[in-house]
Design a binder for these strands. Structure first.
Lengths: 199, 199, 199, 199
DNA sequence: AATGAATGAGGATTCATTCAT
DNA sequence: CATGAATGAATCCTCATTCAT
């Protein structure tokens, strides 16, 4: 029942449940945290049994890992691209611009990552995530710049991550806010670049 | 037996265990997260029984609450002071300066708060903390400023919170880093102030 | 499709998978025990799905039962033969001799039976196995003999079962060990026969 | 309630529950096997909750380990003693005699060990038990004797272990049976000693 | 001021089994 | 002949909490 589609194809929507588990899980993880979200809860909301989850994923952690891998792919590609470019201010601005867009697609995941750092540190994705962040940092910052300028770069990255969520309860349309955040981030990086020239 | 002597030497100072519980708890909470830290673990590290913890605190949450209240008192006072001042750039700078110092004393707690947001949101201190942050925000930002400038202010706050931990694996002495972070934060607020004048 | 060819070459011989399941199952049962061996494990090692096992066998227990029946047929025949003979010492020796040989073919099964008695007792083959053993015992022992002599006979049987596995970590070639075990068993039965004559 | 004794001592029978858990656990382990016995079952029979078991023992395995350690102490001592004696036939007989007696006290445990070998092999006591058996074997057997004589010695040991349980459904009083088994075992060892002299 | 003993609720995970395709 | 998807029941275990002493 219910697996027949308009065109009469009685397809078994392979990946349907798989995908739905990921969706609901991310929703709940982001809402309540990883630890506080039980598999029972996920299963109930999907109207399947806990055991069904285990048919699709070997462990609770694997659910998270799979979400993470799926949603951070665009960032991986961005990092790959960024590392191949010359470390100019132009590159950095472009990276921030693209990063800002990539974040939109993975917003719930990043909100989750940000709010569950303690938990994630102990999980297998902990290091993976940290590595990605450090790679981004190394694309953005200049290790020979002043400490202050380095802080500016790190702050730029942070502003982008946090900005999106912290501003949730502020007035204004989401796309506008994204642009404002991006502007501040680009400003910070630009200042970091200008900085050393006028010591 | 015989835990008090006339001159106070070698006595189990009242509040000794109480304090030790808070210390160990915060240490573990910050390290592993609130959910992953069990009372058994805290008790074991203190070499007392779980039941002993219940002599000093009614619940696990109360341990956290008490830590929170003790460690955020300086910030409360700062907020009180800040609200009483005129909303000038000078005030804001001073607030950031003092905030930066206050953060040093409460660093593990803030690290904890930052890394356990999802958990904390469901706890009683969740709102308290959010309120404090919003009050800080309202001291720092100007609600009539452009969205971008508002982001600058929020970013200034965020930079201070995050900066301290994210920079842990970066070179340089802690006090220097604190100053660099403070500088960037003050810069951001200063720019936010300059901004509206050149629209 | 296409699993049989005219000349029988390259055909999926009927019972191929059936047989392979039994082989792998016995191997794992003997190695890890019945309870600790899951159908998932068996299926994985065969590179089929669990459901495939259910095409060939109705239950997990049935897999074991079928192995048991296949491998103990020679013993059944031996018992049939033994019961038909006169209860002389010669018969008993011959039975032991043949039993020893039969054991070689069913070694993994017997190792399994011996190491999983608690489990087997609750299974349908439990009684069957016990019955076989009692019938063997009744061929070997003389119910009117002294208790000691009866113990000798039971011990002879036991020695044969256990001997093969316990001696695994002892020096020497398997066939030699089998003969040594057989010799001791025959000795025991011989003594049991000599016993009553010299009270 | 119920913890007051005749003499008015209101003692908390420390170790009472601890001991009762061991008793019931061994009973069930021996009856149904280790795997098939769930903690729920043990708890129910004791009219406590599962969690209570975990107050007394860290894991299910630890319950078994503790039983094992308590009940095999006499054997450890016997082995210690046996190793210190000269390897004469007299010593061996004495060891068997004492072993036979020690077995009576630990009968359910040994029945359990015998019937759950597959399970035990994977548990921490597996090796401990095997070690004890090999030490016994090395006290009893002579490594330079003929293979047949070595089998005799191993068989003697085995006969003692198995004899007690296999003979359960045979006529006669328990003590008598024990003596018969012991006699056969001693005979086997004696023959092993006499053997090499007449090659 | 602290302990020993226990509980109830819930956690993740595994298993044998079923059934439509 | 075999699979993909799912279930229900059970498993071991952990946790915060309570209470008499």
């Amino acid at each position: 029942m219910g697996s027949t589609t308009m065109d009469g194809t009685k397809r078994h929507r392979r990946g349907d449940t798989h995908q739905r588990i990921q969706d609901v899980a991310l929703e709940l993880f982001a809402e309540q945290g990883y630890e506080k979200t039980s598999l029972r809860e996920i299963a109930e909301r999907l109207e399947v049994t806990k055991a069904a989850l285990y048919y699709h994923f070997k462990t609770k952690e694997e659910i998270l890992v799979s979400i993470f891998e799926d949603l951070t792919r665009p960032m991986d590609e961005l990092i790959e691209w960024g590392k191949a470019q010359p470390h100019t201010l132009g590159t950095k601005r472009e990276v921030l611009r693209r990063y800002s867009e990539a974040l939109v697609g993975a917003a719930p995941l990043f909100r989750f990552m940000q709010e569950n750092q303690a938990t994630i540190r102990e999980l297998s994705i902990g290091n993976e995530f940290k590595d990605r962040m450090l790679q981004m940092r190394d694309i953005i910052r200049d290790p020979d710049a002043s400490l202050t300028d380095q802080v500016r770069c790190v702050s730029a990255l942070f502003t982008m991550h946090a900005g999106m969520f912290v501003l949730q309860d502020v007035d204004g349309d989401a796309e506008e806010k994204r642009k404002a955040v991006l502007e501040v981030a680009i400003d910070l990086v630009t200042q970091a670049h200008a900085g050393p020239q006028v010591p």
